[in-house]
Design a protein around this nucleic acid. Structure first.
Length: 423
RNA sequence: GGAGAAAUGGCAGAGCGGUUGAAUGCGGCAGUCUUGAAAACUGUUUUAGUGUAAGCUAACGGGGGUUCGAAUCCCUCUUUCUCCGCCA
């Protein structure tokens, strides 16, 4: 969530930046400011009351020691009165605070200067493009036909075992998954990331920490018996490692990478554009996460883009990078770049990675700070990106590399695959 | 899953109803000494809110309660440890 300090000191700027998402939050911001004001007023009253109570309690203690019971009892009565008043104040304060927090949770992050105004994906800016159109055979097929032709991914079998969106990877299909995961992890480690293997179920606090809750409650699978959520991305557990943590300034930046399966309910999406691997309920992803000094976070965002670019280039997939417009950005992000791979047979771009800087938005909820040299605690910036998500990479690889004699695998995967061609 | 014990500052570890934000040790930081370092000695060392500041308030795993007053008593949840059971 946005910090109260920012809302208080840069009110107008925040409103203008939020407007880039195509929303007007002026009224909400004003309400937050007035709630904040009445909260502080109430708090001052309560604290004055408590201070009096503390003095009284001490006096009563002293009177008891000196044996002056009558005087002590008199003060006791006064103390009880104070306490009742305090109880009322406290209830009021809690109520105001609840409203304030609720309001703060509802405000998305404010896009930074570079982000353009826009409401739809069409308004995203293309900032980079690489690769050439694949040359496909005359009867080129979309991946969902290729996967059944070569029997490497079985959607029907997944339907039987679990349901739609839970495919079974078979034979070379399964090995391709494993190869990609290992390739992505190894490349990240080479680039200086530290591998972690986090839990794939998280508690409620973690969901709030990275902003999935309360915003995207319905998008996560929820185990009600134990109140745990299946992660929609490794970002959640990996970033939450740093919840309630105060880091040393020299520890920054922290660079973590992790592979996990990801689970998304994707409620309400149907149709041809979500066919095959285009949208799944369970998929695999290697995620890079950085905890950064605020002065370095945009430099780091660039370096993360470079890393993903390198992966795409090695895989030989034609791709482009979009800087998302305000309206297309995720709730918690201050700036996001999407990578899209070209899908030759579908003749469309498929989103394969999303790299974002959240600035202090997550850190504020997580209470992740670093200690400056003069001993002050400041919020860190958090960043993350897919490097990469598998299904659409697989879709593009299969479609773009299909030939009359099978599907050729890119060279970078050969050592991981143990074969060079799916036929 | 059953039985028992426990949870205190960066760490170890006292305190078990009267001022305790918390003894002591270690670690960290600053200084004295030293050519420098070590040792020794001295000082300092949690966080959040509020306030221009002095200060005030809150926090001893989380939540609730008893009391004029709770780290200390009670309830509850969570976690950890020991023993038993089960088990990849």
């Amino acid at each position: 969530m946005l910090t109260l300090t920012a809302i208080r000191t840069q009110t107008q700027e925040i409103i203008e930046r939020l407007a880039k998402r195509g929303i007007d939050r002026t009224a909400d911001i004003q309400q937050i400011l007035s709630l904040d004001e009445s909260k502080r007023a109430k708090q001052t009253l309560l604290e004055q009351n408590l201070a009096k109570g503390n003095v009284l309690a001490k006096e009563i203690g002293d009177l008891f020691k000196s044996g002056d019971k009558a005087a002590a009892d008199e003060k006791k009565a006064e103390s009880i009165e104070l306490k009742e008043a305090a109880k009322v104040l406290e209830t009021e304060l809690t109520e105001i605070d609840k409203q304030l927090t609720q309001k703060l949770y509802e405000i998305p992050n404010a896009p930074v200067a570079k982000v353009v105004y826009g409401k739809t994906p069409e308004e995203n800016e293309t900032v980079y493009e690489w690769g050439v159109d694949p040359v496909l055979p005359a009867n080129a097929k979309p991946h969902w036909e290729l996967t059944s032709q070569y029997d490497i991914i079985d959607f029907e079998l997944g339907n039987k075992i679990t349901g739609a969106g839970f495919p079974v990877y078979k034979g070379k299909g399964a090995r391709l998954q494993r190869a990609l995961i290992n390739f992505f992890l190894d490349e990240a480690i080479k680039a200086g990331y530290y591998e972690v293997q986090p839990p794939i179920l998280v508690n409620e606090a973690s969901g709030y920490g990275t902003g999935q809750l309360p915003d995207k409650e319905g998008q996560m699978y929820h185990d009600k018996a134990d109140n745990l959520y299946l992660i929609p991305t490794a970002e959640v557990p990996i970033t939450n490692i740093y919840r309630d943590v105060i880091l040393k300034e020299e520890e920054l930046p922290i660079r973590n990478v992790g592979y996990t399966p990801c689970f998304r309910r994707e409620a309400g999406s149907y149709g041809a554009h979500v066919r095959g691997l285009n949208r799944l309920h369970q998929f695999d992803k290697v995620e890079i996460v950085q905890i950064a000094h605020p002065s370095q976070s945009y430099e780091i965002l660039e370096s993360m883009l470079e890393h993903v670019k390198m992966l795409m280039t090695k895989l030989g997939l034609k791709f482009r990078i979009l800087r998302l417009c305000g309206g297309d950005m995720g709730f918690a992000s201050a700036m996001t770049y999407d990578f899209e791979a070209w899908s030759g047979a579908q003749q469309r771009w498929l989103e394969v990675s999303s790299v974002s800087n959240f600035e202090t938005f997550q850190a504020n909820r997580l209470k992740c700070r670093y200690k400056t040299k003069d001993g002050k605690n400041e919020l860190v910036h958090t960043l993350n990106g897919s490097a990469l998500a598998l299904p659409r990479i697989v879709a593009s690889l299969l479609e773009n590399n299909q030939t009359e004699n099978g599907i050729n695998m890119p060279e970078c995967l050969h050592p991981y695959l143990g074969f060079t061609n799916i036929n």
